[in-house]
Structure formats: structure tokens, C-alpha cells
């Protein structure tokens, strides 16, 4: 049946250059066996390139890639023991679901009975048994996504690579599939490297988040560590929604601070008293929470997130009070200032 032997992944000083432009400067990363590691960052940060280098679809300019302790830097994709789920799903339109899922094994010339058994097992895990004879165009987006994952499972890879697998789904399906992938990860106990630009996906799914920016790793660690203790202003801004309020240190009377950060949920709002007088500009009621956009006098625009339903009059005057323990201060280099 389907059994995986999770493998570790290690990148040592990996560099990628396209001509004269360096997309990824020397980069080191270790993913321990069984871990779900999410590479997250804005578009163009090099996360997909990194994943494609791990998959062997993109040549490595310099450095070394190891999978399960084996140097695969110059190995062909097929020899790396990886499976990849593509953003477009990359389903073969001329094959049925069953043929799609068994395609890798068939290419490898495995016996028909074995292919059938493994495909059926994967279909059962993914609850796709009823759709096996359909062509991809007769499937819904979510089902296509399952087939793409099934195709990866069938090959029993040491390492799963997922390239923005949910970005083509609508919001509801995306939540559903997010849970599904997390469940699969637990059930199968595999190592996964998951690329996304969506920090919500990263926060909810990851054992380890790696935040990339301009090809560099800004910070790697467990989701809540990144949330609580961002090592750079970029990470502080990227993780968390809505993003952290960045204010000018000088305006707050702390000229040594380049960027003064406070998350929207760490600001208290009061109609009568507080540290900063502010004007309400816009109120977004999301039901379970409320986002208040304000203009703090002499400080700048600020967003406050309240974990409740609240009403404020647009143009009304209120007072804001930051939670001092939650304030993050960054220098001009984006590194946090310790006091």
C-alpha cells in the first residue's frame, strides 16, 4: 500500500543566476524529515525558483542540494525521489483520472497490478474513487486539485513539493483543501515543501515557515515564533493580517527608532482617553471582528483590529493606546532594536 519514508532536505549555499542577475544569493536551508515547510514571500521573491531547483527543473548555479542525505544537485528530476503538485495542477487532458494518477508509475514501467493497487489506495485516501474514469475537464477545481495530489502520492516520494497548489481555487475550497493537505501530511507523515504567497496558508499549515524576500531568507521558524518575534521589519509586516502598523519612530519621540511597529490587534481604542488622539476614517465590520482605519494625529494612518462587533462614527474622534509589551522597534537596517 501507500507507505512513505520521509526524507530530509538540505540546501547548502545554493545560488541561482539568470545571466547577470542573481535571483537567489547563497542560501542555506534545512528541512527535517516529516516536516511541512512553507516557503512564503511576495511574488518575485524567488520561492518558486527555489522549489524548482529542489525539483531539478531549474539548474543550480552554485551550491549543493541534498535529499535524504544524498547529493542530488546535478541529478535529473526523476532521480531525486520527489513529487510535485503544480499551481496549474498539470493534469494531462487526454488521460482519465486513473491514467493521470498512474502515469508516473507507468512511465517507470511498473507492473499493471501494482499501478492499479496504488492508484486505488491513493484514490481512497483522497475520496476520489467515484471519479476515476473521468477526464480532467469533467472535474471541478477541487477534484482536479485532489487528482494532482493523488498523482504525487501514488509515486510514494521521499519529498513532496507543492507550488502554490491552492491559488486557483475559490476562497471556500481553498480553506477546505488547506485542511485536507494538512490532514494528508499528518496521515502520511511525509516531508513537504510548500510554496505560497498567502501568509494565512503559511500560518495555518506550516511546521516551519521560511519567509523569503529578494531571494534571501528573512527568517525561518515556527509560525507563532515568527508572529511573536519577527527578526526583521519585513517579516513583521508580512506575517499577520492585517499587516503590522509601521510608524515613524521620530514622530513618536523615539528618534533612534527607524520603524516603530504595533500589530492592529495590540492597540486599544477608547472614546475618551488614551495615548494618541485619532480620527476614524473607515470601519470594516467582518462580523467576528472589526477593522478600524484611523488617522492618528501627527503620527499617520493606523489600523486597529477589534475581536468584537463595534460601531464607530466615521470622522469621530477617539484615543488609541498601544500595548507596550507588543511594540516592535526596528533600526534603519530592518533589524529589531533590543532595549
Amino acid at each position: 500500500m501507500i507507505q512513505m519514508k520521509p526524507a530530509g532536505l538540505a540546501l547548502h549555499g545554493v545560488v541561482k543566476r539568470f545571466g547577470p542577475t542573481e535571483v537567489i544569493p547563497p542560501l542555506d536551508l534545512v528541512v527535517v524529515p516529516g516536516e511541512l515547510c512553507v516557503l512564503v514571500g511576495p511574488s518575485g521573491c524567488g520561492k518558486s525558483t527555489l522549489l524548482r531547483m529542489i525539483a531539478g527543473l531549474e539548474e543550480v548555479t552554485a551550491g549543493r542540494i541534498e535529499i535524504a542525505g544524498r547529493d542530488v544537485t546535478h541529478a535529473e528530476s526523476a532521480q531525486r525521489g520527489v513529487a510535485m503538485v503544480f499551481q496549474s495542477y498539470a493534469l494531462y487532458p487526454h488521460l482519465t483520472v486513473r491514467q493521470n494518477m498512474g502515469f508516473g508509475l507507468e512511465l517507470a514501467g511498473r507492473p499493471k497490478a501494482e499501478i492499479r493497487e496504488k492508484v486505488d489506495a491513493a484514490a481512497a485516501i483522497l475520496r476520489m474513487t467515484d471519479y476515476m474514469d473521468r477526464k480532467p475537464k469533467a472535474l471541478s477545481g477541487g477534484q482536479r486539485q485532489r487528482v494532482a495530489i493523488g498523482r504525487a502520492i501514488v509515486r510514494q516520494p521521499d519529498l513532496f513539493l507543492l507550488d502554490e497548489p491552492l491559488s486557483n481555487l475559490d476562497a471556500e475550497l481553498r480553506n477546505e483543501m488547506r485542511v485536507e493537505i494538512a490532514r494528508l501530511h499528518k496521515e502520511l507523515g511525509v516531508t513537504m515543501v510548500y510554496v505560497t504567497h498567502d501568509q494565512v496558508e503559511a500560518m495555518t499549515m506550516a511546521d516551519k515557515i521560511v519567509v523569503l524576500n529578494g531571494g534571501r531568507i528573512e527568517q525561518a521558524g515556527r509560525p507563532m515564533d515568527l508572529y511573536r518575534d519577527p527578526q526583521t521589519a519585513f517579516v513583521a509586516g508580512f506575517i499577520g493580517s492585517p499587516r503590522m502598523n509601521f510608524l515613524n519612530g521620530a514622530a513618536l519621540g523615539e528618534p533612534s527608532v527607524h520603524t516603530w511597529g504595533i500589530r492592529p490587534e495590540h492597540l486599544a481604542i477608547s472614546p475618551t482617553e488614551g495615548d494618541w488622539p485619532a480620527t476614524v476614517e473607515l470601519v470594516e465590520n467582518l462580523g467576528s471582528e472589526t477593522l478600524v482605519h484611523l488617522q492618528a494625529d501627527g503620527i499617520g494612518p493606523v489600523i486597529v483590529k477589534l475581536g468584537r462587533d463595534a460601531t464607530f462614527e466615521t470622522g469621530g474622534h477617539v484615543f488609541l493606546t498601544p500595548d507596550p509589551s507588543a511594540v516592535r522597534r526596528f533600526g534603519a537596517d530592518g533589524k529589531p532594536l533590543r532595549r
Binding site: 525539483a55 531539478g56 527543473l57 535529473e76 528530476s77 526523476a78 520527489v82 513529487a83 510535485m84 503544480f86 499551481q87 496549474s88 495542477y89 498539470a90 494531462y92 487532458p93 487526454h94 502515469f103 508516473g104 512511465l107 517507470a108 498523482r151 509515486r155
Partner: peptide, 27 residues
């Protein structure tokens, strides 16, 4: 033809010769 299909087959262990006959030709 989308490049993803060919990359997926490469990762799945297909040789270039198989990619041509099993994916490019039918599509």
C-alpha cells in the same frame, strides 16, 4: 501546450522520448 505538463512528467520520471510520444503527440 502548457510547460507544466512536461515538467510534471519529468518529475514523474519520464524520459524526453516518452514526454514527446506520451504527452506532446497525443495533445
Amino acid at each position: 501546450l502548457p510547460e507544466d505538463l512536461f515538467e510534471a512528467a519529468r518529475i514523474d520520471g519520464g524520459s524526453e522520448w516518452q514526454l514527446f510520444w506520451r504527452i506532446a503527440v497525443p495533445l
